[in-house]
Simulated scan of single mutants.
Amino acid sequence: MFVYEVNQYLLNLVNDMGLELHFVDMNRSGIYFADEKVIFLSNKLLEKNSDFEVTHELAHCIKKHEELKAYYHATDYSRRKLEFEANRIAIEILLFIWSNEYDLEREQLNAVKFMEYYNIPWNLESCVRESMLNYG
């Protein structure tokens, strides 16, 4: 089994936020536990680039979604709204990393390559393209 490394910038961000990151055997891709300051990711993600999942869970922390637990569980709409917000923030963080690692200008950004590299679900393509238009 090939194991991908989590981006060093993301690992530093996790540490700077006082969080721990653990890969464990579980059926979901990831979860953030605010009380324990821990992000758990599925160890199945070790076989692919898991930076999107790491960043998605970080986004929940950044936006303090744990304070909205009742809202999150109230309706399917409210859950989807908070998950989309975490996805959008994750995309923006990864876009910053991507453009800086490869020294890209906004005109050089390629949504398909970006999404494939970070294993971003295709239902988020419009969010990626919008973030790229607004980047910089």
Rank of each mutant, 00 (worst) to 15 (best):
L104V: 05
Q8V: 07
F2V: 07
L124Q: 11
T55N: 00
E105V: 06
L82I: 11
E67D: 14
W98Q: 07
T55F: 02
N100V: 02
V112P: 01
E36T: 08
D35Q: 12
T55V: 08
N119G: 05
A59E: 02
I93C: 01
R88H: 09
Y71R: 10
W98H: 15
V3P: 02
V128A: 06
K48C: 12
L45W: 00
W122L: 10
E101F: 04
R106L: 09
V128N: 04
Y9G: 01
N123I: 10
H73V: 08
E92N: 13
F96H: 11
N119D: 13
C61H: 14
E57L: 06
N123D: 14
N123L: 09
N87P: 03
Q8F: 06
R79I: 11
E101L: 07
K81Q: 15
G18A: 13
A90I: 01
S126D: 10
I91T: 03
D51S: 03
L95A: 06
L58I: 11
F40Q: 09
Y102N: 12
L46H: 03
I89K: 07
N119V: 06
N12M: 07
Y71F: 14
N43T: 06
I91R: 01
L82T: 14
A59H: 00
R88M: 09
Y117L: 13
E107Y: 13
A90P: 00
E66A: 10
L41F: 03
A86Y: 00
L82P: 01
D16V: 01
E85N: 10
D51E: 04
L45T: 04
F2H: 07
A86T: 02
S42F: 06
E105N: 10
L58A: 04
S42E: 08
M132L: 09
F23T: 08
A74C: 10
Y9E: 10
F52C: 03
L133I: 08
S29F: 14
V38A: 14
S131T: 05
N49Y: 04
D16I: 04
D103W: 08
I89H: 11
L94Q: 05
L124D: 07
I39C: 06
V38D: 05
M115N: 05
N7F: 00
D76R: 14
S126N: 07
W98Y: 15
D51C: 09
L58W: 03
E53R: 01
M1D: 09
Y71A: 07
I91P: 00
A74M: 12
M115T: 03
N27K: 14
Y77M: 06
F33A: 05
R80Q: 14
S126L: 07
L68T: 05
F96C: 07
S78N: 12
L45P: 01
H56E: 13
